[in-house]
């Protein structure tokens, strides 16, 4: 048996989350945005797993499975939207898709 400092797991998760956030806010290509979102979701799942091993309990892993399902569904719908948008506007630039401008 061995030990890992709890906060190191959380540190890893937070760093991944922050990187994903930077990706979401900087990229203009909508595929990259979706990928960065996946990174963020994954980071959240990591927190659950870390928590699960901290208390030696399976609940956190169940939650990770839920996040996994959510991510799968979200990616399916999101990618379908990207395809549809590309068909209509011939671009993947999200700044072009600004019809909601006030």
């Amino acid at each position: 048996m061995y030990t890992i400092p709890f906060e190191h797991g959380l540190l890893l998760a937070s760093a991944l989350f922050a990187l994903g956030l930077v990706g979401v806010t900087t990229r203009r290509n909508i595929v990259f945005v979706l990928m960065s979102l996946e990174i963020m979701l994954n980071a959240t799942g990591l927190v659950f797993v870390v928590g699960s091993s901290r208390w030696g309990h399976a609940d956190g892993q169940v939650m990770f499975l839920m996040i996994l399902t959510l991510a799968a569904a979200e990616v399916a719908v999101g990618l379908a939207l990207i395809i549809q948008l590309y068909r209509r506007f011939k671009t993947v630039d999200i700044d072009v898709l600004s019809q909601l401008k006030g």
Partner: peptide
């Protein structure tokens, strides 16, 4: 003022949420 903030740019919205 608030119309100006509603740019339609998704990244601005995310940024303000952040």
């Amino acid at each position: 003022l608030s119309v100006r903030s509603q740019s339609g740019l998704l990244r601005w919205y995310i940024l303000s949420i952040v």
